[in-house]
Amino acid sequence: MSPQQPAVLEKKPISFSNILLGAGLNLSEVTTLGQPLEVVKTTMAAHRNLSFVSAIKHVWSRGGIFGFYQGLIPWAWIEASTKGAVLLFVSAEAEYQFKVLGLNNFTAGIMGGVTGGVAQAYLTMGFCTCMKTVEITKHKAASAGGVPQSSWGAFKDIYHKEGIRGINKGVNAVAIRQMTNWGSRFGLSRLVEEGIRKVTGKTNPEDRLSALEKIAASAVGGGLSAWNQPIEVIRVEMQSKKEDPNRPKNLTVGKAFKYIYQSNGIKGLYRGVTPRIGLGVWQTVFMVGFGDMAREFIGKLTGEKPAAKH
């Protein structure tokens, strides 16, 4: 009797409909509540003396309702329409390679997500988050006899003065954030799912969670992943255009951490965590809650059956 042959590993196919679905959902999420929560979160991280309510008032003073959408066009839209594709391609390839090395599905999935998160940071999110932060924190008043600097004007100015490094300032902090985001969101969501299964008696792996249960698990996982808020505050400080004579020049992640801690203590490192939790929950509920409807719609458009992960 011949020995049993080991199962052959196969890569998950990357379909056009998955990419289109991810871009569409991300664009919709950021254009609704996503960007307003991002603006409030960044404002609190940059102005660490502001409370949640006073940050909202500050944002409103910078343009009314439009103040909450600073950095949406083009930077948030560029980021939203590209980061999903990067994550999908890189995480799928990385997950496959980790399985080839012998890792189990759970660990390979986490490592694939971490790798995809790092790729997101360095390929698309670095300059997008930098320019969004510049828009949110820069001085809004017009120069003498002039008009406020446009978004593209700020981009050109930074590129002219500091080159590629200038428009990617804080990218290392973004990479650390994305690594920990995807690793913890994946792990925490699965942990909550297991808890829900025990409570509801769905002990068989074949038993499917309801849409509401999946949303609840993902929302809790997304909210709890805000534990890494210090990295986000460091990222904002490195990219901020807020005038601060006490801030050290040529900030690194380490220098930024030291400066924030010395200036504002532990609380300073967690400024903006409330809107960050709200953002994590909203992103998750949006992507999971509307995912099925979006997959069905995209499937009709493309003739493919999308299999995007929540």
Rank of each mutant, 00 (worst) to 15 (best):
Ile136Phe: 06
Ser143Trp: 12
Ala142Gln: 06
Val192Cys: 06
Ala173Phe: 07
Glu194Arg: 11
Lys156Glu: 11
His160Asn: 14
Leu188Met: 10
Ala173Gln: 12
Gln178Thr: 09
Ile176Glu: 07
Ile167Arg: 00
Val147Ser: 14
Gly187Gln: 08
Gly153Asp: 08
Gly145Trp: 01
Lys161Leu: 04
Ala173Asn: 09
Asn181Val: 13
Ala173Thr: 04
Glu193Pro: 04
Thr137Ala: 03
Trp182Thr: 01
Ala142Asn: 04
Trp152Gly: 06
Gly166Pro: 00
Asn181Trp: 13
Ala173Val: 09
Gly153Tyr: 03
Asn181Tyr: 15
Gly166Ala: 01
Ser143Tyr: 12
Gly166Tyr: 01
Gly195Glu: 08
Val134Ser: 01
Ser150Ala: 08
Tyr159Asn: 05
Ile158Met: 01
Arg197Tyr: 12
Thr137Asp: 03
Phe155Ile: 07
Arg190Glu: 15
Ser189His: 02
Ala144Asp: 14
Gly170Lys: 06
Ala173Gly: 13
Ser184Asp: 05
Ile167Asp: 02
Ala142Phe: 05
Gly183Asn: 05
Ile136Pro: 02
Ser151Ile: 12
Thr180Asn: 05
Asn172Thr: 14
Glu162Asp: 06
Thr133Cys: 10
Thr180Lys: 04
Ile196Ser: 07
Ser189Thr: 15
Arg190Val: 13
Gly195Asp: 08
Ile196Lys: 08
Ala154Thr: 09
Ile158His: 00
Lys156Gln: 12
Lys156His: 11
Met179Val: 05
Val171Phe: 03
Gln178Asp: 11
Gly145His: 03
Lys161Arg: 12
Gly195Cys: 05
Ser150Gln: 06
His160Pro: 05
Val134Trp: 02
Gly163Ala: 01
Ser184Cys: 09
Ala141Trp: 12
Gln149Ala: 14
Thr137Ile: 03
Lys169Ser: 14
Leu188Pro: 01
Ile167His: 02
Val134Ile: 09
Lys138Gln: 10
Pro148Val: 04
Trp182Ala: 00
Ala144Ser: 13
Ile167Asn: 01
Ile164Leu: 08
Leu191Asp: 04
Lys169Met: 10
Ile136Met: 15
Lys156Cys: 11
Lys161His: 07
Thr133Asn: 13
Arg197Ser: 11
Gly195His: 12
Ile158Ala: 02
Arg165Glu: 02
Gly195Thr: 08
Leu188Cys: 03
Gly195Met: 08
His139Met: 12
Thr137Glu: 02
Gly166Asp: 00
Glu193Gly: 14
Thr180Trp: 07
His160Arg: 13
Gln178Cys: 09
Glu193Arg: 09
Glu193Lys: 14
Glu162Thr: 01
Lys140Pro: 08
Arg185Leu: 14
Val134Cys: 03
Ile158Asp: 00
Val134Lys: 07
Leu191His: 05
Glu135Cys: 09
Ile167Gly: 00
Val171Arg: 03
Tyr159Phe: 10
Ala141Met: 14
Ala144His: 15
Glu162Arg: 07
Leu191Ala: 14
Ser189Cys: 06
Ile167Gln: 00
Ile164Lys: 03
Ile176Asn: 08
Glu135Ser: 13
Arg197Ile: 09
Ser189Ile: 01
Ala154Cys: 15
Ile136Arg: 03
Arg190Ser: 15
Ile164Asn: 01
Ser150Asp: 11
Val134Ala: 10
Glu193Cys: 12
Asp157Ser: 10
Leu191Phe: 14
Arg165Leu: 03
Ala175Ser: 14
Met131His: 02
Gly163Glu: 01
Thr133His: 07
Ala142Trp: 03
Arg190Leu: 11
Gly153Phe: 10
Lys132Ser: 07
Arg185Tyr: 10
Glu135Asn: 10
Ile136Lys: 08
Met179Asp: 07
